[in-house]
Simulated scan of single mutants.
Amino acid sequence: MTDPATGADASRLWHRLSGTSVLLDGFHALKHAVRFGAEVLVAVAVDRKAALALAEELAPDVRDALDALLTEVTQAEYAALVPRPHPTAVAALAVRPSREANLARLARAGRTAPVVVLDDPRHLGNAGAVIRLAAGFGATGVVTTGTLDPWHPTVVRGGAGLHFATAVERLDVAELPPGPLFALDPEGDDIRGVELPDDAVLAFGSERSGLSAGLRARADRLVALPMRPQVSSYNLATSVAMTLYHWSLTGGAAPGQDRP
């Protein structure tokens, strides 16, 4: 990282890099990105001392790294750098992980955790929430189809920087990683009677339209979450959480076990 000496230096570096870098919006996004090995190019805080105190309290493992990264800026300088100021008044820019490395990780034989597929999602916040919980379950990655950019700043904000803890990419249905594809659909088999293997590809339809015809045709099996009659649907992130929890009970690695 270039170590800017002043807030003005940091602002100039930020403006030079912002078009090609990942925006880490808020303390927790920066904390997680650092924790999972992101290459942070520039990081700023309106109150550097308060940010480091927060790190001391909530993330002592990255406190020294943040001490080396953070440059204090004025409130006006900070507001000029981010589209929507975060309550912690912390922000950073990081290098997006290599697409080639992510694709290799997603396609690796013998995966020990599923890949989550969001089929043509429409809501940026929902996509971010899915990436956050997928990282928490140790999923191999999250793939989106369709037009939504899974690295959009709003998605990264919703994911709290945990894009760096799992492989996040956008692919066409024909490009999905290998592995048995289980697609969530109300007409599928009750998931409670299904064992989800560790190398499963778990596909979820869009919030409005459900599964696309192409993904449904490619699915090896349709499975359904238990739902009370007359309730129309679950939130997308809730559906993913329920499915990954079921996987963790039926085929998942032990809690806390590292997964490649």
Score class of each variant (00 low, 15 high):
P197I: 15
T140A: 05
S98F: 01
V46S: 03
L148C: 09
V34D: 03
L103M: 12
D149V: 10
H86S: 14
S11C: 14
L118T: 09
L103K: 09
L211K: 06
G125V: 12
A167T: 00
A45M: 12
D189P: 06
M1T: 09
A55D: 13
A200R: 04
A38I: 02
A167H: 04
P97W: 00
L41D: 07
L24H: 15
F137H: 02
V194N: 08
M227C: 03
R122L: 13
T154A: 09
G252F: 06
A76V: 05
V73D: 02
T147V: 13
T2G: 06
P60T: 04
A80P: 01
V116F: 13
V22T: 04
L13S: 06
T166H: 02
A213T: 07
L66C: 09
A101R: 06
A91V: 12
D120E: 14
L66N: 11
D190M: 04
A107Q: 14
G256M: 04
A165H: 03
D25N: 15
D190I: 03
L249E: 13
G26S: 11
A254M: 11
A45L: 11
L222F: 12
G146T: 09
L176E: 14
E57M: 15
V142I: 13
V42A: 03
R221P: 01
E169R: 01
A55F: 12
W247R: 11
A113P: 01
R16F: 15
L196S: 01
L17R: 09
E100Y: 08
W151V: 00
L211T: 06
S233I: 06
R108H: 06
Y245L: 05
F27Q: 14
